[in-house]
Structures are given as C-alpha cells and as structure tokens.
Amino acid sequence: MEALKTLRMTAIAAAIAAPLLAGALPAQAANERLAAFYKNQVDPHFALVRGGVEAMAKQMGAGPVTNYAPTRPNNLAEQLSQIEDVTVKRPDAILFMAVDPRGVVPAIEKVNAAGIPIVNYNDRVAGGKFVSYVGADDFKLGLDTGRYALKAIGGEGGVVIIEGVKGSTTSDQRVAGFRKALEEFPKVKLLASQPANFQRLPALQVMENLIQGHPRIDAVLAAADAMALGAIEALEAAGRKNTKVVGINGVPEAIQAIKAGRLLATGEFDGFKIGCVATEAALRYLRKEPVPSEIILQGIVIDRSNLGPWDVPMEKRTCPKWADVAR
C-alpha cells in the first residue's frame, strides 16, 4: 500500500513536471520573429517546406522560426485557434498555408486587422490580404504530369486517377489538370477516379480493389507521391509491373522510386523551394524591399533524365536565387 502511494505520488509529480518543463523552454529574442504554419506534421512534403523556411531564415539572419501544425492532421478548427493565438503573440510576419482555402478567411481577416504582414504559401487562401502568394500552379502540374503519362502509354488505354482530400486546392486543381490532359487523348478511357486522402494505405487498398475489377490498367495518375507509391505497392504485389504510375510533389522517396524505375515521373512541387521563397518574401517585405504579389514557382516533370537536383538530402539543398524566381 505504501509502495502504491509512493508510485502514485511519483507519477503525479512527473505528470506535473513534464508540462512545466516544456513551458520553461527558453523564450526567443532575435531579429525578425517568424511564425510558420503547416497543414500537418505527418507528410514529408511539409518537412521539406519547414526545412526551406528554416534554411532561409538562417541564411538571412532572422530569428528562430516558431512552427505551428494542428495536433490532428489537417484539422481546420485547430488551425483557426492557432492563427488566432498567433495574432495575439504578434510575430513580425506570418507564413501561412490553409487546411481549407475558404474556412480560414475570417481568421486571416483578423490577422489583417491586427496589421501583421502575412505571406500565403503552398495552398492558396480564397480571401484576405497577403503580402504575397508563393506556390506552384497545381492545375498546370496536373496537366503536364498527366500529359507525360498519357504520352508514355502511347495515347491509348485505361487510366485510373487517385485523388487527395476533396475540397483542398492541391487535390482539386491537380485532378482538374489530369482531366484536362485526358481530354487531349480521346483514345484513353478513364476507368475510375477515387480519393485516397493523400495517404498511402487508402491508396494501396483502393488500387488493390480496382485491380480486381479492371484486368488492364495502363496508367495511374495520383495527385500526390504518397498515393502514387501506395498504388505502386499494390500493382507490384499483383504482378502488374507494366502499369505506368505518376505522382506529384517530388518527395525524396519518389525520387528514389523514379531512380529504381518503379515510378514513371512526378510533377515538381518543391516544398523546400516554396519554404525558402516564402520566407525570403516575408523578410524582404519587413526590410522594405519590393515583393511581387504572386510568385509562382515553375514546376517541371521530374523523370529519370533530370532528377539530379532532387536526389540530394535536405540538409545539402540550397535555396533558389531570388532573381530567378521573383518576376
């Protein structure tokens, strides 16, 4: 009984100490204080974005960056609370990507009212005022990558689309691009278009199920690499090695898969670059330098012939030059 009591008291003491210790982390004081938002802390794409943000902040001598991601992946209600809280904290500038393009608008208007400069990156927000938008053209990425795949199968056959989270800009625009590409190839038949929420296991299972219903699938167009790689696992397990699969993003695993000949190609949606450029835009604005209202990073289709620049670990990557991207 005595031992039990001691154990319980120790547990309580530990439980009290943990959050207090966490709270006692050193407060930051440096030049520009940046707050950066992400949609989740699960997808490696956002790890790349964060790497870019931190690399550029360091390179330009800004203070440490505070990072915010919802504790439940892609949770809108949590993101709303976080942006409201950050408004109170008053960082010098905010880098923001939206879990949902429309639901966050009232919260962004509050940031505008508080007069904190905010750069929109990665996912476009449908309202509010931003210093700049830094991202890629998701529709064009879908179109180019789709075209690339459809050409590779000789312009005819059956195709499957795997969608991301319905309602998110990155998924909707990329899928619209895929469909536009399909219109250009009238001999290609769209067999199915199913969402897999940007996740690997759902993509794997959707593909396993579709394989059963379709004896021949010539190409799979996935709206993100994670889903493309899940689909490949299903196809390889079923012995369907001739199906061409493309993804979008260019995360490290996708580059390795292209090298190994498993993934045909991926549309460049370079998180590291997006993070770099958005950070530079915010710091330039704070340092009273001109910043264009929109910076669209031109993404290419990455395949075996040109993957060199992406076959580099994140720590060794360098940010693009401002003059090359800001036009």
């Binding site: 439980a15 943990a18 959050p19 966490a22 709270g23 982390l25 407060a27 930051q28 707050a35 802390q41 505070t66 990072n67 915010y68 991601a69 919802p70 504790t71 609370s81 976080q82 809280d85 950050v86 109170v88 904290k89």
Partner: peptide, 20 residues
C-alpha cells in the same frame, strides 16, 4: 492549448502535453 500556442511549443510536444 492557448498557452502552448503562445509559447510556440512544437505541436508534437503539445500532443504529449494533452495526454499528460
């Protein structure tokens, strides 16, 4: 939740704190 956001605690540690 508000205090952790104001302190800028990493989300992963926020998750742990809720459990604790």
């Amino acid at each position: 939740r508000n205090a952790l956001n104001l302190l800028g605690i990493e989300s992963s540690m926020q998750v742990v704190s809720i459990g604790v």
